[in-house]
């Protein structure tokens, strides 16, 4: 695709697409454009990488109790498959490197970083995301506790915090304040709501 054609696409928003879809398309095109232009400007050879996939992978898994089948490029992480293929936007992408915990989901009941797990590795897996934990009409006790204790500010890390906290309780190794803090250290909160997150987890833990 020539550069001018990409630019044409950028300015003509397809009438049927949502704002999110349009932003995703514009962002993807913009990134490719920037790399190509920058390399050309420096007189560097543009590295033509063949991004055609050697073969997609078909994966059947259970997400929030429902059977799903994915046909994905093997590079797709569980995080991206949840968000982009299954339209479950509750699981957040923060660092995409296993450092922030925003993407925490439960696989077979255990908390993991979905950004460091390939969707292709999920054949037969039971995945629970924040959408499967509870909704407005049926809040999970951990969600209720997070609301009660004001355990978030911007809320971006919250789905990961809640999935992680549920995993923590199931593991059963953390009881004291220090143990809970240590066990939740894989979930970073940019707003610094840590004390309230701790209070929420303690409340559910003690069954108050």
């Amino acid at each position: 695709m020539a550069i001018n054609e990409q630019e044409d696409l950028l300015v003509s928003k397809p009438s049927g697409s949502t704002r999110r879809e349009f932003l995703q398309q514009a962002s993807a095109l913009g990134t490719g454009l920037a790399i190509t232009s920058s390399a050309k400007a420096k007189g560097l050879p543009v590295n033509k990488i063949n991004f055609s996939t050697p073969g997609n992978v078909t994966v059947s898994l259970v997400v929030n109790g429902k059977n799903k089948t994915l046909d994905v490029d093997p590079r797709v992480t569980l995080l991206d498959a949840l968000r982009e293929n299954l339209q479950l936007m509750g699981t957040k992408k923060g660092c995409d490197r296993g450092q922030c915990g925003a993407c925490t989901v439960l696989v077979e009941g255990r908390r993991i970083n979905s950004c460091l797990h390939l969707a292709a590795m999920c054949e037969g897996a039971h995945v629970t995301t924040i959408e499967g934990i509870g909704g407005v009409d049926n809040l999970h006790p951990m969600q209720t506790a997070f609301l009660k204790h004001d355990a978030f500010q911007c809320g971006y890390c919250t789905p990961g915090q809640i999935c992680s906290a549920i995993g923590l309780l199931k593991e059963g190794h953390a009881t004291t304040d220090d143990e809970i803090r240590e066990s939740m250290s894989g979930n970073i909160c940019r707003c610094g709501a840590y004390q309230n997150i701790l209070d929420a987890i303690k409340e559910v833990h003690s069954g108050i």
């Binding site: 296993g98 915990g101 925490t104 255990r110 908390r111 993991i112 970083n113 460091l116 797990h117 992680s164 995993g167 923590l168 593991e171 066990s183 939740m184 250290s185 894989g186 979930n187």
Partner: peptide, 9 residues
């Protein structure tokens, strides 16, 4: 080492 999530993986 690491975090609880990473240790689970």
């Amino acid at each position: 080492g690491a975090s609880a999530q990473l240790r689970n993986m």
